[in-house]
Design a protein around this nucleic acid. Structure first.
Lengths: 247, 247
DNA sequence: CGGCGTCTGTGCGCCAACGCACAGATGTCC
DNA sequence: GGACATCTGTGCGTTGGCGCACAGACGCCG
């Protein structure tokens, strides 16, 4: 029986060929990610990369006014800390834990070293970054043109896709701040979705009952992001879901 | 006297150390970029990278409804064709020439080769990509929270920063479609800016008269993007503005 | 089990931006 | 220089989302 926690729960780590995996494995440290934990603040130095397994991290920008908006989320499909290998070491955005869970932490220097070996790790990281870019540019367009309800559906779908169950632990207040809209707007949209039987919620817990229902109400952005992610990473998934290596 | 056109007009090419520059120089081809020319369509294969000198290219997403929104612009500070070295070879966005001018074209395979040498070219391209990511995530937040007038100011500033003169050739209709807003909204905002004496325009030509005036009306997003670009690329600018190498 | 903090729900007035329709101005091309 | 396409300007009514204020509900913790 495989251990409860396993680096292969993260798709990028799972995709590494044995040799590369063995090299980073000893340096991966499982860390709990508490809700609201700030992985980095705008301009702050970043010392570690995080490969989420069950946690989800939100990359977002906080304006001078205090208003904020998410540009992308990172779950078990990706890694937090792009700027470590892209070269800047920091960004003007923040990264905050949005769904509590776990992640594997890797020292910044080791990640950079592995990246510079120009092996599959580099390839994977670059591909993932490309997928992240798609997500951000899609978010930009979505923020411009789509309704709160459409965006809520997109957000819910992207979120449940990254957690093991069909329930997410999250208040409507928090969802509102992720999307950069008013809480009341979320209340209204969520109410409609509940009445339609697509979701059900109670104080901080939202359960998705009907995925395909949500998809009909979501904007195209959800599908675009998912499709691009699978296109970019599907052909490089080696060991995908083998649990064999974990101790 | 240096020739009229020169690869060093592009900041990335200008930043290459002599050895690397000499290697790509013979393969750079100067091409005119006509207004409205489509460099790539969503999903289409990309065969060349473009290093703009006087042209500006808009990266944007067109929705099913036909509405569109720009996620970033690329001028002489960057390169069009990120996905060539990031790994996807294509993206769901389009790239369209927004300000006519010139660019140096480089074959996709050669760019990839140069990238894989892991020299300064790779470093530069990754840094630039990081700056592009900042621009996109900022655009996402900006679309959510800022007024049309603020966004128009941001856009005008980013655009004039990339052209030699203080005038841009562009109809209000086109600006509206870049920002993803109604033309009437641009008419109104531009009218206010003109009455304030910050700009002056006539049928397809907009002249910036008072940069700092525009900056006071722009949102913080302009400053963030500019600052991040200079932070990421300033410490790698070798040959910056030496014209010596061009034939 | 009772109290309290937090989360959820609702009802306003308000405003930026939308969509549409049409009038006027400007430049270009024969 | 006259005709025409295109770009710019204006005036509606409509609406999605905002900001605020407050009422109710839930669930935890002592």
């Amino acid at each position: 029986m495989p251990s409860l926690h396993n680096p292969s729960q993260n798709h990028l780590l799972a995709a590494l060929p044995p040799a590369e995996f063995e090299r980073v494995f000893p340096h991966l440290e499982l860390v709990p990610m508490a809700l609201g934990k700030v992985l980095y603040e705008p301009g702050g130095q970043l010392h570690n990369a995080y490969f989420p397994t069950t946690a989800i991290v939100s990359l977002h920008y906080v304006m001078q006014s205090g208003a904020s908006a998410e540009s992308a989320g990172v779950g078990n499909e990706g890694v937090v800390g792009i700027s470590l290998f892209m070269g800047g070491n920091t960004t003007p955005s923040s990264a905050v834990v949005q769904i509590a869970g776990h992640a594997y932490r890797l020292d910044a220097r080791l990640l950079k070293e592995e990246f510079d070996r120009a092996g599959l790790m580099q390839h994977l990281l670059l591909r993932y970054t490309q997928a992240l870019i798609t997500q951000m540019s899609q978010t930009a367009a979505c923020n411009r043109h789509h309704t709160v309800e459409q965006q809520l559906c997109r957000w819910l779908l992207l979120t449940v896709d990254r957690v093991p169950s069909h329930e997410v632990v999250m208040t409507q207040e928090l969802i509102a701040s992720m999307l950069g809209v008013r809480r009341e707007g979320i209340v209204e949209s969520a109410g409609r979705l509940q009445r339609a039987g697509f979701i059900s919620y109670r104080r901080g817990h939202i359960a998705v009952l009907d995925r395909s229902g949500l998809e009909t109400r979501a904007c195209e952005c959800y599908a675009v992001v998912k499709k691009e992610l699978s296109r970019l990473l599907s052909d490089v998934l080696y060991r995908q879901s083998s649990d064999a290596v974990a101790a």
